[in-house]
Amino acid sequence: MAVYKKITKDNLVQFLQELTKDRILIAPVREHELVSFSPVADAGKVDFTFQNSFVPPKSWFFPQTEQIFSFRIEDGKYELSAPSLPGGTVLFGVHPCDLKSILALDPVFDGKFDDNYYCTRRKNTIIIGLGCQSVGRNCFCFKVGGGPLESNGADIFLTPTGGDFLAEGVTNQGTDLINKHSRFFSDSSAEQVDKEKREGTDRLLKQSTGLKGDFNLPKVKAFLDANYEIPYWEDLSYRCLGCGICTYLCPTCHCFDINDYARSGLEGERIRCWDSCQFKDFTLMAGGHNPRPSKKERVRNRFMHKFKYHEDRYNIFGCVGCGRCVQKCPVNIDPRKIILDLQEVAGND
């Protein structure tokens, strides 16, 4: 049962503060010019107007560094203990692109083998999505099947209206939370929320200042299905520096490394950390063989993953159009341009 409500900015702060009483609140805060999703005790510190967080909120479910277990040896025997994972959490302020990225990550960590760490955090977290108040020049969610006011993936979704917000309970869990704290909300209706989202989306997209050109993702996918070796990837790879910026900031990238650290022979831990398919040693095998030996293979792997592999495996496009890599890539490797280029190459065939 969905509910449709209104909430003022002040009440929203109070609502969030109320939620911190029995939950961890993870929300966007601005620290030294960058916005990050961090644990927040004082809801007054939450940033409601940010364009894009530096690191995507995937880091809540899949932290950059996470202990798998710690161990010690006692009486000649290993004692392994997995860390306890966070309980009830509210993840607030997730923009539609990042909401969609969580839906793209779910089937990776769920599936035949549940990833206990991700899945536990995911199960214990209520996500409050926040519609965008502007579309940045690097944003392109609306070109990859999303939109600045799309609520998919949220439990509760907030649509900004001037200074205040319209609130939808998208899932039962979200609706329950709104109902439980109904004193912060006033009434609205499905029609009003719908209208505001439709008109808001039109308004936001008209203001979009980003790269022009229409995407035809099925065409790109079909082209990549049929063409693995194309000169384009090598040309593109020339300028790639092989750093991890794009993958670390990508809300759908999920590669990780596992390493053991022992403080002495008697105790230590096994850790997983984000890793990047752009690093040259990523696929290097113990015997020295590397299946992806040059930047060409590595750059191709990244974009094949976004535009084809992720869809092949999980039926979801691997890029949500958040624009983080567009903004931060030091050598202007821009997925929007790559899509347009591939469309052109495909068209010439």
Binding site: V108, F109, G111, K112, F113, D115, Y228, C253, H254, C255, F256, D257, I258, R272, D275, C277, F282, T283, L284, M285, A286, P291, N301, M304, H305, K308, Y309, D312, R313
Partner: peptide, 24 residues
């Protein structure tokens, strides 16, 4: 086939050959 693996359960992303994971 043999590829470098870390998780073994189709998540860590390094043993893919195209859309296939060697571990799964």
């Amino acid at each position: 086939l043999e590829m470098r693996m870390k998780c073994g359960i189709g998540k860590c992303g390094r043993c893919n050959i195209g859309s296939k994971y060697v571990c799964l």
